[in-house]
Amino acid sequence: PDLGLTQLFADPNLIENLKKNPKTSEMMKDPQLVAKLIGYKQNPQAIGQDLFTDPRLMTIMATLMGVDL
C-alpha cells in the first residue's frame, strides 16, 4: 500500500502550492528536489527510500498533510 501518498502527490498544483508555502518555498528553488517531487506523481513508492536520505521530504510531507512540525 502507498499509505495515501498517491493522493498527496497527485495534486496538479503540488509544486506551485509548495512554492507559495513559507515552510517549503526555499526548498522549491532546488531543481533536483522539484524533479523528485514530479517523479513521485508517477511512482509514489519511490519516496519511501528518499525519506531516509533527504530530510526536506519529511517537511514537505508534513506540509502536504497539514501537520505543523
Rank of each mutant, 00 (worst) to 15 (best):
N13Y: 11
A62I: 11
Q32C: 09
K23R: 13
T24L: 10
D54M: 01
V34A: 04
N43P: 02
G48W: 15
A10N: 12
T63V: 15
D11I: 04
L33T: 02
T24I: 06
L18S: 00
D30G: 00
N13L: 09
P31M: 08
L37P: 00
I60D: 00
D30S: 03
N17Y: 15
F52H: 12
N13E: 09
S25A: 14
L5S: 06
L18N: 00
E26D: 08
M61L: 14
M61D: 00
N43L: 03
M27R: 01
I15Y: 03
L51R: 05
I47Q: 04
K20M: 12
G66W: 06
K36L: 12
L18M: 03
Y40E: 01
D2S: 14
G39Y: 15
S25E: 09
P55M: 08
G66K: 10
I47P: 04
M28D: 00
D68M: 02
Q32A: 14
Q32D: 14
A35T: 09
M65E: 04
D11W: 03
K20F: 05
S25V: 07
P12Q: 07
F52A: 13
M61V: 15
K20C: 07
T59M: 11
A10D: 11
P44M: 08
L33F: 11
M61Y: 14
M58F: 14
T24Q: 00
V67Q: 13
R56Q: 07
A35Q: 12
T24K: 00
L5I: 13
D11H: 06
T24P: 00
Q45P: 06
I38D: 07
A46E: 11
M58T: 07
L3H: 13
Y40W: 08
L8I: 13
A35P: 00
D50N: 05
K29N: 11
D11R: 03
Q49G: 10
D50L: 05
N43T: 05
A46C: 08
P12H: 06
Y40S: 01
E26M: 09
Q42G: 10
T59R: 08
N43V: 03
Q49F: 13
K29Y: 04
G48S: 15
N17T: 14
L14G: 02
I38F: 06
Q49W: 10
K41I: 15
P1Y: 01
L8Y: 11
Y40V: 03
A10S: 14
Q42F: 09
F52I: 13
G48Q: 15
Y40N: 01
D50I: 04
E16K: 07
D68C: 04
L14Q: 03
D54C: 03
M61P: 00
M58I: 12
M58R: 11
S25I: 06
E16N: 11
T59L: 15
E26P: 06
L64N: 01
K20P: 00
K19M: 13
Q49R: 12
Q49K: 13
L37S: 00
M61Q: 02
D11M: 04
P1G: 12
N21F: 05
Q32W: 14
N17K: 15
A62P: 01
M65A: 09
K29P: 00
K23G: 06
Q42C: 09
M61N: 01
N17L: 12
R56S: 04
G66Y: 07
P44S: 05
L51T: 06
N13S: 08
K20S: 14
L33K: 00
L57N: 01
N17S: 13
A46Q: 12
Q45C: 10
P1M: 09
G48V: 15
M58L: 14
L14T: 06
F9S: 02
K20N: 13
E26V: 07
L8G: 02
F52W: 13
P44W: 09
L18G: 00
T53R: 12
D50C: 05
Q7F: 07
N17P: 01
N21R: 03
Y40T: 01
T63H: 10
L57K: 00
Y40G: 02
A35C: 06
V34P: 01
Q49N: 13
P31A: 08
D54R: 00
I38Y: 08
F9N: 01
I38K: 13
A10L: 13
N43Y: 08
A62Q: 12
A62S: 10
L3F: 14
D30V: 02
F9Y: 04
M28A: 02
M28S: 01
D30N: 04
F9P: 01
A62Y: 13
A46V: 09
I38S: 08
M27G: 01
M58D: 03
I15N: 01
M28V: 04
D50E: 12
R56Y: 04
Q7H: 13
L8M: 10
P12R: 05
N43A: 05
S25K: 10
F52Q: 12
N21C: 06
T59N: 05
L18E: 00
G48R: 15
G66T: 08
M27C: 03
D30R: 01
V34F: 03
A62K: 12
T63L: 15
K23E: 07
L57P: 00
